[in-house]
């Protein structure tokens, strides 16, 4: 499932349109004396799945609300499909899930879906929409009598009903339990695999890592890094080479090319290296009797935490 999804994303990324779908330039938003968003620049291209990742209060929701025209930037400009956010929504080019808001009371899911579909010129077929959003068997339910997870699915159906080119999702899995969350992301991937562009805000690193092809990490209203997971790991991460070595070889292993520091645990040594190729070559060429080698990147979480701390201390 994932392979198919990311094929689309990768191909789209390779053949990038020169024109971004989302173009944010020098955008700030101030509430009184609080700089919720501080001079953000962001370009998002067709077919990308981008996570806007940051701790609570980092400015994610403010950013999404500005991208949707619900808030007006204090300074800077936002263009979506080369037009204003509101106009892009009016033209059915953007679908969105915001955090806030109960759905309309007194109507059933089926009636609601009919309504939303009727507003769009080329809606998804009703059956397909119900299936992607996972609303089978709930059609007769009133919108004011749903659980939190079910409400989120209705919101998701509202976001994709018009088959929009771009999806903007603000913390889409908030209020979902683990199982619902898993189902939601598989729905989302089904939608992404149709070649759509997705930007979602989250404070869950695992979600960002698992479902996005690109991370935009935001802290204190500023973008602290923007790139693919690999790029971020290369920029900020040492690689780890872990293998089983006898105690008397630890000292030799720790002095291999590229190794910056090391840790030992039981009979294993983990070498943190700035140049994994050089370290592995040196290890192979050495007389150290190593076994069970594995190579991994530094956990994204460590990078994330240190970037956020850096961003917040500024």
């Amino acid at each position: 499932m994932q392979v198919g999804v990311f094929d689309v994303v990768e191909n789209a990324a390779i053949h990038r349109d020169p024109e971004p779908i989302i173009a944010v330039s020098g955008v700030s938003k101030t509430f009184g004396t609080v700089h919720a968003v501080d001079t953000i620049d962001l370009k998002i291209f067709r077919g990308e799945t981008v996570a806007l990742l940051g701790p609570n209060g980092a400015g994610k929701t403010t950013t999404i609300n500005m991208l949707l025209g619900l808030l007006t930037p204090t300074t800077g400009s936002i263009h979506i499909f080369r037009m204003s956010p509101t106009k892009a929504i009016q033209q059915s080019l953007v679908g969105a899930m915001i955090q806030e808001g109960k759905m309309i009371p007194g109507v059933t899911i089926s009636e609601f879906i009919d309504f939303v579909r009727s507003l769009h010129p080329h809606p998804l077929p009703k059956d397909q929409l119900i299936e992607i959003a996972g609303l089978q068997g709930l059609l007769g339910r009133r919108l004011d009598r749903l659980s939190g997870g079910q409400t989120q699915r209705v919101r998701f159906s509202m976001a994709i009903a018009g088959n929009p080119e771009l999806l903007l999702l603000d913390e889409p899995t908030a209020a979902m339990d683990v199982e619902t969350r898993r189902e939601f992301w598989s729905s989302m991937q089904a939608y992404a695999s149709l070649g759509h562009t997705i930007l979602f805000a989250t404070h869950y690193l695992e979600e960002a890592e698992a479902f996005a092809s690109r991370l935009v990490i935001i802290a204190r209203g500023k973008i602290v890094i923007d790139g693919t997971i690999e790029f971020i790991q290369q920029q900020y991460g040492e690689k780890r080479v872990t293998c089983n070595v006898p105690a008397d070889a630890i000292s030799a292993a720790s002095q291999l090319a590229g190794v910056q520091r090391y840790e030992t645990h039981n009979h294993y040594i983990t070498l943190f290296t700035g140049d994994v190729d050089a370290t592995v070559r040196a290890l192979a060429a050495s007389t150290i009797p190593w076994q069970n080698i594995s190579i991994s990147g530094i956990a994204l979480e460590d990078i994330f935490l240190s970037l956020v701390r850096k961003g917040e201390s500024k």
Binding site: L68, G69, L70, I89, Q90, Q91, S92, V94, G95, A96, I98, E100, G101, K102, M103, I104, P105, V116, L119, H120, R155, M158, A159, G162
Partner: peptide, 12 residues
């Protein structure tokens, strides 16, 4: 309830 805000996300 925020429904009016959600309505702003639709082409109406």
């Amino acid at each position: 309830s925020g429904w009016l805000k959600n309505l702003q996300l639709l082409p109406i």
